[in-house]
């Protein structure tokens, strides 16, 4: 009974997801333009990065210049998350070893 109920909820979510994926809807409600795969609408920031990254940072790879220069705080947080994960894994498994003695 409980499984059947969960399955019904699941099928509802599935049909909603498929509806959204097949018909993405009005991306901009004022102009009524649909969002189409392959032609994103708002690209001002990315065009700025593509045209100015080589002069400002000197790197050919635009993605690297975004990761390490324009969005450096993002990368700092990411490195901190990795550091904290290693700390947590070491703490958990070390606690286990002390428990065994």
């Amino acid at each position: 009974m409980r499984n059947i109920l969960m399955l019904i909820v699941f099928l509802t979510i599935f049909s909603f997801f498929m509806y959204v994926a097949i018909n993405p809807g009005d991306f901009n409600s004022q102009t009524g333009e649909h969002f189409v795969f392959g032609s994103p609408k708002f690209t001002d920031m990315d065009n700025y990065f593509i045209h100015n990254a080589q002069n400002q940072t000197g790197a050919n790879n635009v993605v690297t210049s975004i990761v390490f220069d324009y969005r450096g705080f993002d990368t700092l947080g990411e490195a901190s998350v990795l550091f904290t994960a290693v700390l947590g894994v070491g703490l958990a498994l070390r606690l286990l070893r002390g428990d065994k003695k």
Binding site: P40, M45, F49, I50, V63, V67, D74, E78, V81, T84
Partner: peptide, 20 residues
């Protein structure tokens, strides 16, 4: 567009940390 790729790079590393 390069910005979603940079965000995906962040997301992948955070996913590795979460899985660990």
């Amino acid at each position: 567009l390069p910005t979603p790729q940079a965000l995906t790079l962040t997301s992948i590393v955070i996913g590795v940390a979460t899985s660990a």
